[in-house]
């Protein structure tokens, strides 16, 4: 059965004045996923998220949330969405409780939600202190409380770990997992750090210079990472080995005694070692090096830049 993506953009484009920021973006966030929206600074992540919330008007293409067109049903759709865009919008002169209360009134939610979300983000004890005395991490948590206020089906978080200390980041990860696993929420979070996203995401989209260069499950990204594995061979003379064996024609000589060969399979590795020994070449070391997910991410974004 085909399920409608909870967030779907079709050929989405946007430009600031003459400068094109997004080019035909086709984002698909499956229901019940934690979708890590990755890209370097300035790639177009925040612009995309603002388009998803109707803060910006697309230059072309459409945005659908829950299968419905955002441009036609903005108010109805946003009642099922909680969002935290860049720095949380907080009123410094009000307490944390009053900040949440202002948004609760605007959304027309039951009064009990204010205390509930403050407890959920661990701010109950500081709720009646003015926000101007809050640390950066506390402000970020309060921003998260505002996003959680309507108990949203879709949570859109732009760089949510900004300002959080390691314990705060860990708590946030736990909260996001709980929201997905226990409450079936869909979470779209942007980040420029793959390491942060891979710990929590089920799906990943990578954007570079306004173009989606990868989209799929985290497993698919990890599979791509495995195809980029290389064998590193330490021998006496790398150039000699390469000229002796046709199997090493594609190898790269990286030092006098070091060759790098694309990894194919375990069997291929064994055959290569036997061939080298049979040709009278010493094999001091032969091991497989797999790029980290971060390398894969950097490779994706660098390739897109080069294009």
């Amino acid at each position: 059965m085909h399920t409608v993506p909870l967030v779907e953009t079709t050929n989405l484009s946007f430009q600031f004045g003459e400068r094109a920021v997004l080019h035909g973006l086709g984002l698909e966030v499956p229901a019940g996923s934690i979708y890590g929206f990755l890209g370097p600074n300035g790639a177009g992540k925040s612009t995309t998220l603002r388009l998803l919330l109707g803060l910006l008007r697309p230059g072309g293409g459409t945005v659908r949330l829950f299968g419905h067109e955002l441009a036609r049903h903005r108010v109805a759709l946003l009642s099922r969405v909680g969002a935290l865009i860049e720095n949380p919008s907080l009123y410094d002169h009000l307490t944390g409780h009053e900040n949440v209360e202002a948004t609760r009134r605007l959304r027309g939610l039951p009064a009990a939600r204010t205390a509930a979300v403050l407890a959920q983000v661990g701010l109950s004890a500081s709720a009646h202190r003015p926000v101007k005395g809050y640390s950066l991490g506390m402000k970020q948590r309060l921003g998260l409380a505002l996003a959680l206020l309507p108990d949203p089906d879709l949570l859109i978080l732009d760089e949510p770990t900004n300002g959080l200390d390691p314990a705060g980041i860990s708590d946030l990860r736990l909260l996001l997992r709980q929201l997905r696993e226990e409450h079936g929420k869909t979470i779209l979070l942007s980040s420029h750090l793959i390491g942060e996203v891979e710990k929590v995401a089920t799906h990943v989209g990578v954007i570079q210079q306004g173009r989606l260069v990868f989209q799929g499950s985290l497993a698919a990204l990890q599979a791509r990472q495995q195809t980029q594995a290389e064998l590193v061979l330490e021998t006496a003379c790398a150039a000699t080995c390469r000229s002796l064996l046709p199997a090493l024609a594609a190898a790269q000589v990286v030092a006098a005694g070091t060759l790098r060969v694309p990894f194919q399979s375990r069997e291929h590795t064994a055959a290569l070692a036997s061939a080298l020994v049979a040709a009278g070449q010493p094999v001091f070391s032969l091991h497989c090096e797999q790029p980290t997910l971060e390398d894969t991410f950097l490779h994706l974004t660098e390739t897109a830049t080069a294009q």
Binding site: H2, T3, V4, F66, G67, H68, H73, V75, A76, L77, S79, R80, Y91, H93, L94, E98, E101, A102, T103, R105, L106, R107, G108
Partner: peptide, 29 residues
């Protein structure tokens, strides 16, 4: 798909205005 999830009801403009006013009044503190 033929059946999309139903959209939640949208409160009327006056209800939205009242809510907005209540929030703005609180922000004056």
């Amino acid at each position: 798909p033929s059946s999309l999830p139903a959209l939640p009801p949208v409160p009327g403009v006056f209800v939205q205005f009242g809510r907005s006013l209540a929030a703005d009044a609180l922000k004056l503190r």
